[in-house]
Design a protein around this nucleic acid. Structure first.
Lengths: 343, 343
DNA sequence: ATGAAAATGTAGAACGCTATACGTAGAACA
DNA sequence: TGTTCTACGTATAGCGTTCTACATTTTCAT
């Protein structure tokens, strides 16, 4: 007497039933599924008809045991930063007409959690992995890449042969910001960066900022503040900077999300933007455009980055072995928060 | 001569190797893995030691063929709305000390995509599914629930025996907003709702809004505008309302995210907030607190909702058959956007 | 016609686990 | 001393696919 299990019944249609219904072999159905070689038009049609009739859907676990799962993993540091939504949109649109399905996970911007998440994705037989803003060290990334096709977004490793990277030119982006602020009459430009030992994009941006300042004879004004990525820490750092003796007249923030917090802090301190303080963000997310923010930002085409990363990871799955490194040229989108100051 | 496949090598440690190393049977190792009955202390230790030594991790696909995958699926409409980040934090913290791993997917707020995503999750043998703000019809949800343990967040179906629900009291939330606005001197209160045929939370809020208005003798002022969830459509609707002849003095928006857009539109139109227009949102997301927004909102404890949904879905997996429906009492968090108007 | 090559289809062994059915040894009881 | 439990281990048959190896049929030169 078969008791119904506490879980769910196993009434799934299997490949065997499809084969039976279509009057062909199991192997034939599998071939149709995989779009493999050696299937006639008529066979394909027969099988397709049975699949539809029986409402058959292949079981990913079973496929994964021998071949692919047709699942891609996307690792996000968090989902609070709206920039990731742009990237996600790009990834999804690239996957739209493919068999691949995307599954995401968040690492809370924490190393151990990120590592656990990636392992979980490998254990779940994801065919490829896209990591956004990873905090992993280079050797770890190599280990991951040896197990699964890997593409990173927002991590500079352009010399790596083991995995692909997708980036904007962060050094240039920072330079453009400085240029823009200088052109608008700001000279005491500080930079709010992230306290991180592994972020290559931040070190690139810091480098670009430094160089551009020096090349404009403003080496003495260089001021980089690094804060952890928590709301509280950023607020404290911003408050300290803006109330301190060396208050800058412009602040370049490493992401819009953080820039919006700084606008909030500055507003509370009674500072007018941009008269008392110009603010520039990075990523040009949708919030920049809101009138209450009017945030100048660097556009790095998040959707394009997502699109390209999906393309690259699928190419890797299909067998490409040489690394490819995609780079977008950023551009400044000027808004009220950095308008020319009265001379 | 075995050529290296274009994909990756298969150098995973299997349960068989662990068994060999520990000098026990495969079945014994499996028992340890599943924490099943009939394992002595010494056996367990031996096996654990070998697992660590060999760095063994079970393959989810293989486990899924017979038992569980220890994976939970979370369906989000999109990741732009920061409220979902709160829910996610709750889910993740509930899962922290368990074997379960969360995988997310987005449906872009579109029915077909949502359906495809849920099917993909079922095909990937997720042990349970949490759906946020689903647009599925009741019968579809029943079908899903028959296949996998299901919990919905933000969907009223308190009479359902097939799946669990987690909600705040939306009708009350809307009433509280109206009460709050009335107490602050606003009487011509409009509501910006979502154009949706399936959203039960919006119909509840609309009901609450209507009833509270009527009970306060303001039935004639009832004005519900429904816009689709795209930035453009919301802006158009807001603009039309605020420039039109029946401009309200307060606007209740169905989510913070939308409310921020309305603040932007209103600002562009030269309206002062709250003097010319009070604005209230829903969800009390972190953006409300930014000084430039100062948005009054309804707090529905997103993190708690996430926590509870994770608890419920795991209970379902463990065998609970009776439905459970968790409800949070919302509260208004007042900020500048709805400050008492000058009399 | 004839043979070779190409096209199409099938059988059946994996893949790495889980879970059922059993076997065995020692403890507890009469 | 036997008998019955209980605790602990093991052997092994799948789970639903994929994919290699092979068999058969068709096509195409000659």
């Amino acid at each position: 007497m078969a008791e119904a299990k506490p879980g769910k019944k196993n009434d799934r249609v299997t490949i065997r039933e499809v084969a039976e219904d279509a009057g062909v072999s199991v192997a034939a159905v599998s071939k149709v599924l995989r779009e493999a070689y050696g299937v006639s038009e008529s066979l394909r049609n027969k099988v397709r008809a049975s699949m539809n009739k029986l409402n058959y859907r292949p079981l990913a676990s079973a496929r994964g045991m021998r071949g692919q799962t047709y699942t891609l993993g996307l690792v996000l540091p968090d989902i609070r930063n709206p920039f990731f939504a742009d990237i996600l949109a790009g990834v999804n649109s690239a996957l739209e007409r493919t068999q691949y399905q995307l599954m995401m996970g968040t690492s809370h911007s924490q190393g151990p959690a990120e590592e656990a998440l990636v392992e979980a994705m490998i254990d779940r037989q994801m065919d490829g992995i896209i990591m956004i803003g990873t905090t992993e060290y280079m050797d770890r990334l190599g280990i991951i890449a040896k197990q699964k096709p890997l593409v990173t977004i927002g991590h500079h490793a352009e010399t790596s042969q083991l995995f692909d990277t997708v980036n904007n030119d962060d050094q240039l982006g920072a330079r453009l910001v400085v240029k823009h602020l200088l052109a608008n009459g700001f000279r005491n430009i500080a930079m709010l960066s992230l306290a991180s030992t592994t972020s290559t994009i931040l070190s690139e941006r810091e480098l670009g900022y430094r160089r551009e300042m020096i090349e404009n004879g403003l080496g003495e004004n260089i001021n980089i503040i690094r804060a952890p990525q928590t709301l509280r820490e950023v607020q404290i750092a911003a408050r300290r900077l803006l109330e301190g003796p060396s208050k800058p007249d412009a602040l370049f923030c490493w992401t819009d999300f953080i820039a919006l917090e700084v606008i909030s802090v500055a507003t509370e301190l009674g500072l007018r933007i941009p008269q008392d303080l110009a603010i520039v963000g990075y990523d040009n997310t949708m919030y920049c455009d809101f009138a209450q923010n009017g945030l100048t930002s660097v556009d790095q085409s998040g959707e394009l980055l997502g699109l390209q990363s999906a393309r690259l990871v699928i190419e890797r799955i299909r067998g490409r072995a040489e690394a490819e490194h995609f780079v977008v040229t950023p551009r400044v989108v000027a808004r009220n928060s950095s308008k020319r100051r009265a001379v």
